[in-house]
Amino acid sequence: MYKNQHETTPNRKLTPMSAAEIVVAGLRKRYGATRALDGMSFTVRPGLVTGFLGPNGAGKSTTMRVILGLDAVDAGTALIEGKPYHSLRHPLNHVGSLLDAAALHPSRSARDHLLWLAHSQGLAARRVNQVIEQVGLTSAARRKAGGYSLGMRQRLGIAAALLGDPPIIMLDEPFNGMDPDGIIWMRGFLRSLAAQGRAVLVSSHLMSEVQDTADHLVVVGRGKAIADAGVADLIAAASGNRVALRTTAGTHAMRVLGHAGAAVAATGRDTITVSGLPADRIVTLLNQSAVPFSEVSAHRATLEDVYLELTRDAVEFRAATQSEVSR
């Protein structure tokens, strides 16, 4: 879908320092008594889609505004390719961003909206036509943006982010208000951007939106990052080395496996969770002792579980639980 207009410079040498495109370190910001950011630190690397996850009010949008130099911080730094945003000569050639798809003048056409933006970076009008085509808005480009659906505005916002052909793309809640087709389009689009070597930062408050898209996750709560790791690592860490076993002879199986050094726990009437032994060893042991079983499977935690576990304490606005209400 995305055709690269500019060839990547092939002989560019990469130093480890240049590997991180965005480095956020120790951001702190207060609004009166509220701590919006409380030591936010993370990095965004090229070639990956980084999911920026956290409940509403955790500081995701504020962090993005700080990265873009829109909000000032009390402490900390946010650097783009090692430089503060305001020192970039043509910022849209470095970072393309979409904060709010509704942020446009309703009586200006999509094309004119992109045109002024292009002019601010010294880009030719030709580039505007390219990005309009890229996001599939060509037929509507001369209509007033005020009449666009939310999905069309999202596409227009993406077009604005791509305008400077930047190595970094930063999108705030891009899935909000999108229909299923749009969500599928967006996921493929983000993957293709990362595949070209771009660093992509996508914020969301729903794990399910980024689950199949992100390579790397930064989970935030109460103004700081509480996890910053690859998706596979996070899942592995949450899953442990556990195997689920379905058997009618639960007591027998637990004794056999316990003798072999595994930690065993009954989790249901005929289900047992085993940790400390790989699945093939478990099958061999059970067969040797003639314990009947119907199913052996590796237990996998979902990202949803990981997310809920991580953010449980960090949720700012949570409905009162049943017990709190009854009191």
Partner: peptide
């Protein structure tokens, strides 16, 4: 585990940094 990637770099553009663009 992160594979070595080549960061995306747009081709260098000769553009004037300037007030005129704003």
């Amino acid at each position: 585990m992160t594979p070595t990637v080549t960061p995306y770099r747009p081709s260098e553009r000769v553009g004037r940094d300037g007030f005129l663009q704003v």
